[in-house]
């Protein structure tokens, strides 16, 4: 299925992901975080039918469980005692605090999974090329070189295995030595080859003057509207947050979970912000139905 959100200007996507990550970190409140997680899973569902999240399933679950267990293990503070293991106090506060952090972190990871679907590296590159053209070139080279080096290392290990030299057989000190030789060969070889890359860059006028950048993406009206929408909501939420709304104080005394009116207001804005990709998909679907 075509992903309508990805068709927005990279700035919109970037703003959404940067905003969402900061919200997940700032708004530590179980209700906020819980709804956010549901929404993020929904976004992932609409973008790639959860295939990305499935790959991260194991990592996500272990992180979540580890964080919930570890916090009460090291932290005994809090008034509401749940139970005691030997002399170790397990408090409700510790569990809630650990749980909130765990949700926040897996939320951020899940967001990045969806980010990878929507923002391939060239979009990020495009954004940076505007502000920092030299940095963009560096980023571009790095993006090419990391997988290139990995392929080369594989190639070296295949070629060396054909000579009977390998890192998976023999005494371990010999293996370490061979491994070092591999890396050394990889580096000298890559440097040697990079001379040609450098020549090819210079031959195409790199470093001659100020760089311009090819415009892969046009800024449309919809993009402007989306940015206004996102920025207004984000500022409202952060304004509320600066007065302590949308945040559950756990220590020293845990607040009630009940939401005040302003908390509710903040939650509404928060939901509207996070649901933006869903609105886009829904709107697109609706328009499709109307036109057909």
């Amino acid at each position: 299925m075509e992903n309508r959100f990805a068709r927005f200007h990279p700035l919109v996507s970037f703003l959404f992901y940067a905003g969402s990550v900061s919200l997940l970190i700032l708004m530590l409140h179980p209700i906020f975080l819980g709804t956010a997680l549901v929404i993020i899973v929904l976004i992932n569902f609409f973008h790639d039918r959860l295939s990305g999240l499935r790959r991260w399933k194991f990592f996500l679950i272990t992180t979540f469980i580890l964080m919930i267990i570890l916090n009460p293990l090291f932290n005994e503070r809090g008034r509401h005692l749940l139970f005691e293991v030997g002399t170790h106090r397990v408090t409700l506060e510790a569990v809630v605090y650990g749980g909130m952090n765990a949700m926040s972190i897996i939320g951020v990871i899940a967001l990045f999974v969806s980010y990878n679907v929507v923002m391939p590296p060239n979009k990020l590159l495009f954004l940076f090329a505007k502000i920092l053209p030299q940095f963009a070139v560096l980023l571009m080279l790095t993006l090419r070189f990391i997988p290139l080096m990995r392929r080369r290392l594989e190639e070296i290990s295949v070629v060396q295995r054909s000579k009977g030299i390998s890192v998976s057989h023999g005494k371990w000190n010999r293996r370490v030595r061979t491994g070092m030789l591999y890396v050394q060969t990889l580096l000298t070889y890559s440097l040697e080859e990079a001379i040609q890359t450098a020549d090819s860059m210079k031959a195409r006028g790199y470093g001659m003057g100020t760089r311009s950048s090819y415009e892969y993406f046009k800024f449309r009206n919809a993009d402007v509207l989306a940015i206004i929408y996102l920025v207004i909501l984000l500022s409202l939420i952060i304004y509320c947050r600066s007065f302590g709304y949308g945040f559950l104080t756990v220590y020293p005394v845990m607040e009630a979970w009940k939401l005040s009116h302003l908390d509710m207001g903040a939650l509404t804005c928060y939901l509207m912000f996070l649901c933006f990709p869903l609105f886009v998909e829904a709107g697109g679907w609706y328009r499709w139905r109307l036109s057909n």
Binding site: M201, R204, G205, Y206, R211, S212, S213, Y214
Partner: peptide
Amino acid sequence: VFGLENIG
């Protein structure tokens, strides 16, 4: 477009 960007 690398070369074209370089010559601005």
